[in-house]
């Protein structure tokens, strides 16, 4: 694999709360290769949002990186000065957020906002607006030149998400971080946005770190997938390995639970019994053992090793048939 754009190594993040230290992320290893789409799946409380906040270094006040490092284009994100950091955010790295309704400033026109984010480039105002309108038509907004003068509330939800994507790509980033960009949208719009992202990604050749809890979207868009559970990356691999040959019991259970996977209509759907363990008092052994159908004695006592199942495909489990 080429030198990764984003290289997360042994990352652990803790939150300090009055109730104790929450070990929100533990020993995460994840690489985002250039011009590839890496998806992160996991249910609420798995640490997806914490991981993003650590990557862009916008963590909550009470959060600390306990161990590990995040290298973006070879630089350690958590050792950069805030000036260098500003030069990275919004230039080499940009973001698309979940809620298209609040991601744009309501008091400025779309054109103004798209012009302003190019403040680093020494080109004329006219040129910047030209780029903005080109980008808007690229993301499928008809009549882009005249719509630059519109305010965000003139656009519908799907259109706004297109605009936020246009803004994120306008700076030609090396890495785009998309945090559940389709969750707030209807199914028919989701399809449109995913298709758009895929096209643009191929065109711009930027890497994408794509976070979603929606398996369909991950399967369709991503090249590599990481599955997170309770603060750990339990399995990662190519999208085909994960969806066709899942190794970790959690990944399997998650795939089985999705109502759209189950071909025959049934009144009794599979579930994953139990709840996520407390991240303050971590259980010994495997984090998933109390919900795992295959848990053996060793799972209760010893943390599982990372087992390689195929090239780039690893899972942390004691009970894998390699």
């Amino acid at each position: 694999m080429a030198e990764p754009v984003l290289n997360i190594r042994n990352l652990s993040v803790n939150y300090f709360t009055p109730r104790g230290t929450v070990q929100a992320l533990r020993c995460i290893n994840l690489q985002v290769p250039p011009a590839k789409v890496v998806g992160l799946v996991g249910e609420s409380g798995c640490g997806k949002s914490t991981l993003i906040s650590a990557v862009i270094r916008l963590m909550a006040e009470n959060a600390r990186v306990a161990a590990g490092e995040i290298r973006f284009l070879g630089q350690d994100m958590h050792r950069l000065s805030s000036r260098d950091l500003q030069n990275i955010r919004g230039k080499d790295m940009s973001m698309v957020f979940q809620d298209p309704m609040t991601a744009l400033n309501p008091v400025f026109t779309v054109g103004r906002q798209m012009k302003d984010i190019q403040y680093r480039d020494a080109v004329s105002r006219k040129e910047k607006l030209k780029r903005a309108s080109d980008m808007l038509s690229l993301v499928g907004i008809p009549d882009a030149v005249s719509r630059l003068d519109n305010y965000p509330h003139h656009f519908s939800g799907g259109m706004r998400q297109r605009i936020t994507i246009a803004m994120a790509l306008l700076v030609q980033p090396k890495l785009l971080i998309a945090d559940e960009p389709t969750t707030a949208l209807d199914a028919t719009l989701e399809v449109q946005i995913i298709r758009l992202l895929k096209e643009l990604q191929t065109g711009f050749q930027c890497a994408i770190l794509f976070i979603s809890h929606h398996l369909n979207v991950i399967a369709e868009l991503c090249d590599f997938v990481g599955v997170m559970y309770a603060g750990e990356l339990v399995e990662k691999g190519s999208v085909r390995d994960i969806f066709h040959r899942p190794g970790h019991p959690y990944t399997r259970a998650l795939l089985e639970c999705d109502p759209s996977v189950i071909a025959e209509p049934t009144r009794f759907l599979p579930t994953i019994p139990g709840e996520i363990p407390s991240l303050i008092d971590l259980p010994a052994g495997c984090i998933f053992h109390d919900r795992c159908p295959r848990a053996a004695q060793v799972c209760k006592n010893t943390p599982p090793p990372e087992v390689s199942l195929a090239e780039h495909h690893t899972a942390a489990c004691h009970c894998l048939e390699v």
Binding site: S156, G157, G158, M159, D186, A187, T188, L189, E190, V191, Q192, R195, L215, N216, I218, A219, E220, C222, V239, R240, F243, H244, L255, D258, S260, V261, A263
Partner: peptide, 19 residues
């Protein structure tokens, strides 16, 4: 739009545009 998650599925998506 609700097809099952399969990276290899050839999506005969009946795409509808707009909102």
């Amino acid at each position: 739009a609700h097809a099952s998650p399969d990276p290899d599925a050839v999506h005969h998506r009946i795409s509808i545009s707009g909102e």
